[in-house]
């Protein structure tokens, strides 16, 4: 029963809240969608916290994504012990880096007067979830070796079963590792609280900057080719008519 709640109900609830909530927040109050950076109030400590934290998570996010999308490739890569070790150590290092960064960020937020001013209750929730998530992840990686292989072989089928609306939870509920269960549960919790926290900023990571023209000119009324040109320092088609 608990398993059913944790591994079926929670995931679907979280995903639904995430999808509907994020879209609703973006459409009804886009103004609130921001990374609300606090670098302007305190920059030095932020550097030591934010960089290892964000880059660590950035890489781990893609690591998990690859294992989810291409499990057989990961298993094939892990076929050779050297490659497996490289992957595991790299992942563990990025995990440590994220944890280290997160500690500094929490320390900074709680002890810097100016940052306290811009701290909301939801920020504390965010920290709690992230701490659980990263620490449980590190424990899993350390105790249940080798995580990268069995994630691909074992978690991926479960996650996929969720996405195809045919949840298979026998395998995951029979797992004895508490840290793994915590890791999965806190992952879905994290997804579920995205619309209510500063997590929304990762949904609007500005990849499109890479292919957009540098200069942007917006016209109120139609004006021939200038508006469709993508050349540097020329116009850009407006979206408002």
């Amino acid at each position: 029963m608990t398993s059913y709640l944790l591994f079926v109900v929670l995931p679907y609830a979280a995903l639904a809240i995430f999808l509907i909530g994020s879209i609703y927040r973006y459409r009804s109050n886009e103004f609130s969608v921001s990374s609300i950076s606090s670098q302007f109030l305190e920059g030095r400590k932020l550097f030591w916290g934010s960089q290892p934290f964000h880059w660590g998570l950035f890489i781990l996010f893609f690591g998990h994504l690859i294992a989810f999308l291409f499990p057989s490739a990961v298993i094939a890569w892990n076929g050779q012990p050297v490659r497996l070790l490289i992957l595991e150590i790299a992942a563990f290092t990025f995990g440590l880096s994220a944890l280290f960064g997160l500690f500094l960020l929490i320390y900074r937020r709680l002890t810097t007067r100016r940052i306290q001013i811009v701290t909301s209750k939801m920020d504390l929730v965010v920290y709690a979830v992230l701490l659980t998530q990263i620490i449980s992840g590190l424990l899993v990686a350390y105790h249940s070796r080798w995580g990268s292989s069995w994630f691909a072989a074992f978690l991926t089928p479960y996650l996929r079963s969720i996405f195809v609306f045919d949840p298979q939870i026998e395998a995951i509920s029979s797992v004895t590792s508490l840290s793994l269960k915590v890791h999965v549960v806190s992952a879905f919790t994290l997804i579920g609280i995205i619309p209510f926290t500063r997590f929304v900023h990762f949904l609007v990571y500005p990849v499109d900057y890479l292919w957009r023209s540098y200069q942007q000119v917006i016209w109120n009324w139609s004006r021939k080719h200038i508006r469709t040109s993508r050349k540097h320092s020329e116009g850009y088609k407006s979206t408002n008519n």
Binding site: Y209, V217, I218
Partner: peptide, 26 residues
Amino acid sequence: CPSGALYKRGEDGIVLINQERCRAWR
């Protein structure tokens, strides 16, 4: 601006920041 929040108005050249689009990338 990574999120494309800033723009120049075509008609009079005033440079503005779209407050809805700004994501605090600084």
